[in-house]
Amino acid sequence: MKKNIKLILGAGAAALIAVSIGAAPASAHVPKSVRGNVVLTANLTELNDSGASGKAIAVVRGETIRAIGIRATGLSANAPHAQHIHYGEEAMNECPTLTLDTNGDQRLNTVEGIPAYGPVVVSLNTSGDTTPASFLDVTRFPVSKNGSYSYLRTNIRFTDVAGTGDDGGNGTAADIAEAIRDGEGVVVIHGVDYNGNGMYDFEAGNSELDGTLPAEATDPAACGVLD
């Protein structure tokens, strides 16, 4: 069934854009600019053989994401899924492949993917702080229902982020926003139930991001470039 999400473009905007998340074909045309707002889309494809897929649409103006909607399916069921926008001046700003599997375990963890998609610049959670400081607060990320979820959040401000600038220096909010508007942002959804037992456990080891969490909870499951 077609899933329509209306993206309200803020108090100063006169436009109301209705977009289809996960329903329109990949070739469908989305205008890149609507009254000063840049419209970006990402077709999300699986990582780590997760079976996940989806679509993200973001409306960006200046240093603010006026709205971002995500529709994802094929995820680990009834589990939280951390999701972020990644970017780095020194990164390739694309989705990773297994060529970045540096430890030879035939899966990509989040850190191994950083040369491709860059550091976290926005945490796409459901409430509260959206800076990289919240990137692992799994209590505030979407929970899939039977493997799917729809997400919508408005008025997210970009912030300065350490490690995203030239030579790993600080990236300013203005620089990051400009890069995202130019199509260099990457949406990554995390959480892979490798053994299919219906929960995140430690069979695949501990997360390289936080040893108290299982790798299943933080490994990337789907990825797409916002362009």
Rank of each mutant, 00 (worst) to 15 (best):
M1Y: 14
I8P: 06
G10M: 02
G10I: 06
A11D: 15
A13E: 13
A18D: 15
A18M: 08
A18G: 12
A24I: 02
A26C: 02
V30N: 04
K32T: 14
K32S: 11
V34K: 01
R35T: 07
V39T: 06
T41C: 10
N43E: 14
A56V: 07
A56E: 04
I57A: 09
I57G: 00
V60S: 08
T64M: 10
R71C: 04
G74K: 08
G74V: 13
H81W: 09
Q83E: 10
H84V: 12
H86A: 06
G88V: 00
G88K: 04
P96S: 00
T99G: 04
T99W: 09
N103I: 09
A116I: 00
A116C: 02
V120E: 04
T126G: 13
D129K: 09
P132M: 09
S134H: 05
N146E: 15
G147M: 07
L152H: 07
T154V: 02
R157L: 15
F158E: 03
T159L: 12
T159N: 02
D160V: 12
D160P: 10
G171W: 03
A174E: 13
D175T: 09
I176V: 03
A179N: 11
I180V: 13
D182L: 10
G183E: 00
E184C: 01
G185A: 07
V187Q: 07
D193V: 12
Y194L: 08
Y194H: 11
Y200N: 00
A204M: 13
L209D: 12
D210F: 12
G211I: 14
P214M: 06
A215K: 11
A222E: 04
D227W: 07
